[in-house]
Nucleic acid binder design. Structure first.
Lengths: 188, 188
DNA sequence: CGCTCACTTCACAACTTTGTGAAGTTAAGG
DNA sequence: CCTTAACTTCACAAAGTTGTGAAGTGAGCG
């Protein structure tokens, strides 16, 4: 049924990886970091070695190194030494979305601070000052909402992600078995 | 109390503008767009003319034009003709945060699509496929949560922003007066 | 003990982005 | 209807970003 079936599959996988990476890039992520992330994401064990990444993405080891450094800094991947070898494996962080939201949290705190200071500078009885104060409040509101949202997502999942039929708007046609977390930390 | 009080005030305002803009830039927004946005935000009427922007930010009219074009595209500012003059005024959009979230909504829809397709490509019984499907579901979840959040913000505001004690998790300690909307669409 | 492989760092070149001056376009006002 | 003021577009120069090859570093294996 497939002599070049593998090749076709690789081709399709690559298209998905590049498409996903392209979106992430557009959203502000560095290009190489996005590509590495997408490749890891699409890999069976959510983990790859430097050589595998370089090979699949057709980039130099240096580029892999740079991308991984960034992804480590923002806590999206971890590094594991492959036992009995001198190779590292880069592994998608278990609590991926948790980390992402946590990072957003820090940003919101910074923004809130700046806006509060700005409100003070502009004065409480100027429209501009009021606007700044209000926006600061909005960011604080969002911050708490995001935290609450993560809790609800956990519940949603725990309550059975597969019973999700009739989900949000028109029924998600996914059918995921394992969670992002568990899948990401899946057997290697 | 102030002979050069105006100069000091301008200085302080400028610091706030540049600081805010810098954060927005770091978050992925074009630099000029961020600076123009911040300047509008910190202005008393949430609106300025091209000349005012160019003067305050020390940039060319061309740069203002480019920034405004971008901000219009993403629906953050509107353009109004100043009656009895041939000048335009650029005005912060009334429902600023609503627009921002709406934009995010579109992004989430795109991501969900890509991930659903990816899940199909990878196959439902591979860990990678399951991961993609699960993530697609997560994005859909977030999308609805964001919408719900906006509704709650409206309630929160309507209920009196100052009675906000006992917010989400540990109570927000803000205390703004007028709403972002109302302030942004304030009298000119 | 030293060799070798894997990763990292560095300097540089290619590419992209960004802001400007100048020419072009449109519309108000004489 | 022509002038002029305001905004926009265009080509280009400056600045910044990104990925590579090559040299450097250090840990495991013989």
């Amino acid at each position: 049924m497939n002599g070049n079936g593998d090749a076709e599959a690789d081709e399709a996988l690559s298209r998905f990886v590049e498409r996903f990476a392209s979106e992430l890039t557009e959203a502000g992520m560095q290009r190489m970091a996005a590509r590495v992330f997408a490749a890891l994401f699409a890999s069976e064990t959510a983990s790859m070695t430097s050589a595998e990444l370089a090979g699949q993405l057709r980039i130099s080891p240096a580029a892999v190194s740079g991308a991984v450094r960034y992804l480590s800094q923002v806590n999206m991947v971890g590094r594991e030494r492959e036992p009995g070898s001198r190779r590292d494996r880069y592994v998608l962080h278990n609590e991926l979305w948790y980390e992402a939201i946590a990072h957003r949290d820090e940003v919101l705190v910074r923004w809130r601070k700046i806006l509060s200071d700005g409100a003070e500078t502009l004065g409480p009885d100027s429209a501009a000052g009021a606007r700044a104060a209000e926006t600061a409040e909005f960011f604080e509101f969002v911050r708490h909402e995001l935290r609450a949202m993560l809790v609800r997502w956990r519940e949603h999942k725990a309550r059975g992600g597969d019973a999700s039929r009739g989900g949000a708007e028109s029924g998600a046609d996914s059918g995921a078995g394992s969670g992002v977390d568990s899948a990401a930390s899946a057997p290697r």
